[in-house]
Computed example of a mutant assay.
Amino acid sequence: MTSPKYDFRQFQEELAKLEQKMEKQQVAKPLGKKALAAQRMAMARDEFLALRKRHGLSVADVVAFFPEEEGIAYLQELIAAAQAKPRRTRKV
């Protein structure tokens, strides 16, 4: 069984394609800390909701996964976030 020839030109073409992909990714403006954190949170939320939907889980199922103290703390955080008042703007 013989392997196909892998010549130097083919290697150079593949390397050029990879470099072009890297350049395209680096051209985008880097995100700030808050934007990056928001992006990570959005991705995590989407993944979580997809898992919850796929397995048909309720909030009670998710909370029951954690130890009792952590589950209660998680619910308290959810309630506090829902009731949080927006920041007051500064009056001039």
Rank of each mutant, 00 (worst) to 15 (best):
Arg52Gln: 11
Thr2Gln: 07
Ala84Leu: 05
Leu18Asp: 14
Ala50Ser: 11
Phe65Asp: 13
Leu51Met: 14
Met43Thr: 15
Leu36Val: 10
Val63Gly: 00
Glu23Lys: 10
Pro86Phe: 07
Arg87Ile: 07
Phe8Val: 07
Ile79Trp: 02
Pro67Asp: 11
Gln25Lys: 15
Ile79Ala: 06
Phe48Glu: 04
Lys33Val: 08
Lys5Trp: 03
Gln10Asn: 06
Leu51Phe: 11
Ala16Ile: 03
Ser58His: 06
Arg87Pro: 12
Tyr6Met: 03
Arg54Lys: 12
Glu69Ile: 12
Glu69Trp: 08
Gly56Gln: 05
Lys21Phe: 08
Lys5Tyr: 05
Ser3Glu: 02
Ala82Asn: 05
Ala80Leu: 04
Val27Tyr: 13
Ala50Phe: 09
Gly71Ile: 00
Ala44Leu: 07
Lys21Gly: 10
Ala42Trp: 03
Glu68Met: 06
Ala73Gly: 02
Tyr74Leu: 13
Met22Lys: 15
Ala50Tyr: 10
Arg54Asp: 05
Lys17Ile: 04
Gln12Ser: 09
Arg54Gly: 00
Asp61Pro: 01
Ala60Ile: 04
Ala28Pro: 00
Phe65Gly: 12
Ala64Val: 01
Glu70Leu: 15
Glu13Ile: 13
Leu51Asp: 12
Ala81Val: 04
Leu15Arg: 11
Met1Trp: 02
Ala82His: 05
Leu18Glu: 15
Arg90Val: 15
Thr2Leu: 06
Val92Arg: 09
Ala50Asn: 09
Ala42Asp: 12
Asp61Trp: 02
Asp61Met: 04
Gln39Val: 02
Asp61Phe: 03
Arg54Ala: 06
Glu69Arg: 10
Ser3Tyr: 00
Val27Glu: 14
Ala73Lys: 10
Lys85Phe: 08
Phe8Thr: 12
Arg52Asp: 00
Lys29Asn: 11
Arg87Met: 12
Leu18Val: 12
Val62Ala: 04
Ala38Trp: 07
Leu75Cys: 09
Ser3Leu: 09
Lys53Met: 04
Leu75Gln: 09
Arg40Ser: 09
Leu18Tyr: 13
Lys21Trp: 07
Pro86Trp: 07
Lys33His: 09
Ala81Ile: 05
Val62Thr: 02
Ala16Trp: 01
Glu19Asn: 14
Lys21Pro: 01
Glu23His: 07
Leu31Val: 03
Leu51Cys: 12
Glu13Arg: 14
Lys33Thr: 09
Leu78Tyr: 03
Ala16Lys: 01
Arg9Pro: 00
Met43Gly: 15
Leu78Asp: 01
Asp7Arg: 04
Ala60Gly: 03
Arg54Pro: 00
Ala80Gln: 09
Asp7Leu: 01
Leu57Thr: 01
Ala42Tyr: 05
Leu51Asn: 13
Lys33Gln: 10
Val92Cys: 05
Ala35Arg: 11
Phe48Gln: 06
Leu18Gly: 08
